[in-house]
């Protein structure tokens, strides 16, 4: 009994300690942002590795998600004679939900895990310590540019995901199943609201970019500097980011579209 209590106490304390370290880490990132902004080349390099290299998986997945949405949507809508609304259905699903959420999940798997492994290995091979001893702040030099790159690239990736997804829906709906071209785009234009739908989707992806970057970088920076430690941290990044994205998606959806 006492042992169990002790263990519970230890686990709880450990959890809150980690949470505290995570927030201090975030604070450290914030304080170093001005120093990074005057060296945009650092961010540009990371935008390439974090954003551009994730583009392919986003394009392919977006296209497939759009194709499936078109197919499933058509099959449901056609029963009610509402297949002309396919464009609206596909666009709203993507812009409001699937774009930000699926892009964030893919981002966690492709870029987040890479960030954690990279930072964790840099820690394990003393590269971060080495920087500190050279009077170079590793948070400013290594972490913050990657954080900003995640923050900037995820919203863009989510937008591209939605755009290519809508095109996928168009290909299936109009190209294959014979939905009217004009109705597809016209209804979409009519019913998708810039403020209520598009902006809210963008806000979601900004929040997800922030969280995905934070979790991935913190896990790497806080990793136990061994092979097993880095591997555990990488797994945690994908799991925690996915859970955080799905949980936050519900909260944000409730706030945005709840009433």
């Amino acid at each position: 009994m006492l042992d169990a209590l002790q263990k519970l106490g230890r686990v709880t304390l450990g959890f809150f300690q980690r949470l505290g370290r995570g927030h201090l880490f975030l604070l450290q990132i914030f304080t170093t942002i001005p120093g990074v902004l005057i060296r945009p080349r650092l961010i540009l390099t990371q935008l390439y590795t974090v954003g551009v290299l994730t583009l392919l998986i986003i394009l392919v997945s977006g296209l497939f998600v759009g194709l499936v949405l078109g197919l499933q949507g058509y099959n449901t809508l056609v029963d009610f004679g509402a297949e002309d609304s396919l464009g609206v259905m596909v666009a709203l699903s993507l812009v409001r939900e699937l774009g930000p959420v699926v892009a964030a999940l893919l981002f966690a798997g492709r870029a987040g895990s890479a960030l954690t492994a990279e930072i964790g290995l840099m820690k394990a091979t003393e590269q971060l310590s080495g920087m500190e001893m050279m009077a170079v702040d590793p948070v400013q030099r290594v972490v913050t540019p990657r954080f900003l790159a995640s923050f900037i690239s995820l919203p863009l990736l989510a937008a591209i995901f939605s755009a290519i997804g809508i095109y996928g829906g168009y290909l299936v709906g109009v190209g294959l199943l014979g939905v009217d071209d004009g109705a597809f785009w016209g209804q979409m234009q009519d019913k998708v609201d810039l403020q209520g739908d598009v902006y809210n989707g963008i806000i979601k992806s900004i929040v997800f970019g922030f969280v995905a970057g934070w979790i991935a970088l913190f896990e790497g920076y806080d990793a136990v500097p061994t092979a097993a430690g880095v591997s555990r941290a990488t797994t945690r990044t994908v799991v925690h980011t996915s859970l955080a994205v799905l949980g936050l998606d519900f909260v944000l959806t409730a706030l945005m579209f709840g009433d």
Binding site: S129, G130, A135
Partner: peptide
């Protein structure tokens, strides 16, 4: 201060020249 780590702690994604140039460029 300069410190020589046991592992060397060289930055693995840049070459020898850039590694040595690193602290000069930073400071």
């Amino acid at each position: 201060m300069g410190m020589l780590f046991q592992s060397g702690a060289l930055l693995t994604d840049i070459n020898v020249f850039e590694n040595v140039a690193y602290p000069i460029r930073e400071h």
